[in-house]
Computed example of a mutant assay.
Amino acid sequence: MNFIESELLRIFVGEQEKLHHRPLYELLVSEALERGMAGATVFRGLLSFGLRHKVHTSKIFELAGELPMVIEIVDITEKIEEFLPVVEALLRDSGAQSLVTREAVRQWTT
């Protein structure tokens, strides 16, 4: 097996965040696909809290719409760098509260 040094771009947004009447997490994945990124996955958080220290959980019906969506996108550093302005524009235009992280990863190939 071989590996490619890559990066993981992780974006946290609320599941109710929208732009142009579409969920923000869907737009982010669509943009990643359109730009030929190596891969993207969306996870729905079951329990979380953020800056305001308010707990969000899927166990309480009223708060179900406030759960975090975590979008993970993997590619080489250069492609992540090229994609960041797209992410920044979508987050800015949506007005969403968000968190964006990056970390080094290895993509295994055969």
Score class of each variant (00 low, 15 high):
51 L>A: 13
50 G>T: 12
108 W>F: 14
65 G>N: 08
41 T>D: 03
93 D>F: 11
6 S>R: 00
72 E>M: 08
38 A>E: 13
25 Y>E: 00
83 F>C: 04
53 H>G: 10
10 R>W: 01
18 K>R: 15
75 D>R: 06
90 L>Y: 05
46 L>K: 09
82 E>F: 04
76 I>K: 06
72 E>F: 02
107 Q>L: 10
22 R>H: 07
27 L>I: 13
84 L>D: 08
66 E>W: 10
57 T>H: 10
29 V>I: 11
63 L>P: 10
13 V>R: 03
94 S>K: 00
18 K>F: 02
61 F>P: 08
22 R>D: 03
12 F>A: 06
69 M>P: 05
89 A>K: 15
47 L>T: 05
78 E>R: 11
90 L>M: 14
3 F>Y: 15
19 L>I: 02
79 K>L: 09
76 I>W: 00
77 T>Y: 12
68 P>A: 07
13 V>P: 00
20 H>A: 12
64 A>D: 13
103 E>N: 02
38 A>Q: 11
104 A>C: 01
35 R>K: 09
21 H>A: 11
20 H>S: 10
54 K>L: 07
85 P>Y: 03
42 V>K: 05
5 E>N: 14
85 P>D: 04
87 V>C: 01
9 L>T: 01
62 E>P: 06
85 P>G: 14
5 E>R: 14
54 K>Q: 10
79 K>E: 13
21 H>P: 00
68 P>Y: 07
52 R>K: 15
87 V>I: 06
33 L>Y: 03
37 M>E: 08
22 R>W: 01
55 V>S: 10
12 F>P: 01
67 L>S: 11
55 V>F: 13
8 L>C: 13
110 T>Q: 14
73 I>Y: 08
70 V>D: 08
64 A>V: 10
35 R>T: 07
101 T>Y: 02
106 R>F: 11
91 L>P: 04
99 L>N: 03
39 G>M: 05
50 G>Y: 08
66 E>T: 05
91 L>K: 02
8 L>Y: 05
9 L>E: 01
29 V>M: 13
5 E>K: 15
29 V>K: 04
91 L>N: 04
39 G>P: 06
26 E>M: 06
102 R>C: 11
107 Q>W: 02
50 G>S: 12
57 T>K: 09
76 I>L: 02
96 A>H: 02
31 E>H: 03
10 R>T: 15
55 V>W: 11
65 G>P: 06
87 V>A: 01
30 S>P: 00
17 E>C: 07
41 T>R: 08
65 G>E: 07
100 V>T: 14
108 W>M: 12
77 T>A: 15
36 G>V: 13
46 L>M: 09
67 L>E: 13
105 V>H: 06
66 E>S: 08
95 G>Y: 06
7 E>G: 01
13 V>A: 01
97 Q>V: 05
14 G>F: 07
65 G>D: 08
31 E>S: 08
57 T>Y: 09
38 A>D: 10
83 F>I: 01
87 V>G: 04
73 I>W: 09
74 V>D: 14
65 G>T: 11
107 Q>G: 01
49 F>G: 04
11 I>C: 03
20 H>V: 07
103 E>C: 08
99 L>K: 07
31 E>V: 00
63 L>S: 15
16 Q>Y: 09
109 T>N: 09
108 W>Q: 08
29 V>T: 07
2 N>P: 01
19 L>Y: 11
91 L>I: 09
78 E>L: 07
87 V>D: 00
58 S>E: 11
